[in-house]
């Protein structure tokens, strides 16, 4: 290895002062004496300096809030030692949820039985199914009698926050309440009401990480952007995301997805989509979201007898708004010219 090669390999070490004093002195002596290495050293230092010019970005405050919320909930869980007790084997009046095979509970218990004689699951956030006799209910809270629970515990389900309760004063009966984390897979046609409800629920739940929300919107776009699958409930959910999500990247995906929906298949929901886009165009603080709202609104502006007057008026105002982004104004003007009003 030539001296020059060796010295050049040592240049990053010189920058971070990771070379010993003898090595550092030898390297600098070589650089001073070698024009080629001096040029390389100069470029190396310049590159090092340029890298520092990419300044740190502030962490959005919502990340801190989300983390502290989660820490608080974890702290609550830590204060009570999770306990798993065996269920008493009882005569089983159940049959396994099987016909629709809508749920696979990995590492969890099976919920089973017909609806007859079953205490319905209760609680907020419950998602109603179009099926006349849903066998598995996705809900925040479920209240079940022991004979509805399969005695076997499959795998190692994550059970926490276990509390033992009196069973409403019935002599000889006990109760326990706990949080159960399950992995659930639901399959079916895109138009199945349970899947539509689930998609809308996931879109509307801002507690999910932003990547999950973006992925959910992408999935909705891939799934519900055709005339056969377009659904008003999805429009409502996307409009909610566009109005309420704190992250501009998520709102950007929502606006793109609204713009990709087939207006002709949306019926009355098209007006709802247009209104959400008009609101975004007027009020969203992010330029990119407003820019995409122009394109989306242009896509959805057509109505049976021409173009939606509110959409046209909003685009006109944007095109002439002096304090708006110039590129956005041009796009609004282009959208209007393509309408041949």
């Amino acid at each position: 290895m030539s001296d020059c090669t060796l010295i050049r390999e040592q240049m990053p070490l010189l920058l971070t002062e990771s070379l010993g004093s003898a090595g550092r002195e030898a390297a600098h002596q070589h650089i001073e004496a070698c024009a080629s290495c001096e040029t390389e050293w100069s470029k190396t230092r310049e590159t090092w300096k340029l890298l520092a010019e990419a300044a740190d970005r502030p962490v959005p405050t919502r990340v801190r809030a989300r983390f502290l919320d989660e820490a608080a909930s974890m702290g609550g869980a830590m204060s009570r030692r999770p306990v798993v007790v065996p269920f008493t084997r009882k005569p089983v009046f159940r049959r396994l949820a099987q016909a629709a095979a809508i749920a696979v509970i990995a590492g969890g218990a099976y919920f089973a039985g017909s609806t007859r004689g079953t205490t319905p699951a209760t609680g907020t956030g419950m998602i109603a199914s179009a099926s006349p006799a849903p066998q598995f209910r996705i809900s925040e809270n479920a209240r079940l009698s022991a004979d509805q629970i399969a005695p076997e515990i499959a795998g190692s389900p994550a059970i926490s926050n276990v509390r033992f309760i009196d069973h409403e004063g019935r002599p000889g009966e006990v109760g326990m309440t706990f949080d159960l984390t399950q992995k659930v897979t639901v399959t079916g046609k895109a138009t199945d009401q349970s899947l539509v409800n689930l998609a809308a629920y996931v879109l509307g739940d801002s507690d999910h990480p932003t990547t999950s929300r973006s992925n959910a919107i992408q999935w909705v776009r891939d799934t519900y952007s055709t005339g056969q699958t377009a659904d008003p409930q999805i429009v409502t959910a996307l409009s909610g995301v566009l109005r309420n999500d704190a992250h501009e990247g998520v709102r950007l995906k929502a606006v793109e997805t609204l713009g990709s929906l087939p207006a002709a298949s949306l019926g009355g929901a098209a007006a709802q989509a247009r209104q959400a886009l008009i609101d975004a165009l007027q009020n969203d603080p992010n330029t990119n979201v407003r820019l995409k709202a122009v394109e989306a609104l242009a896509n959805l502006a057509a109505v049976p007898d021409g173009f939606d007057p509110a959409a046209v008026e909003t685009l006109r105002k944007k095109a002439s708004q002096n304090d708006e982004n110039p590129y956005l104004r041009v796009k609004a003007a282009e959208a209007l010219s393509q309408m041949n009003l």
Partner: peptide, 8 residues
Amino acid sequence: EAAEDATQ
């Protein structure tokens, strides 16, 4: 977005 999620 991914950086936010990773940080949390």
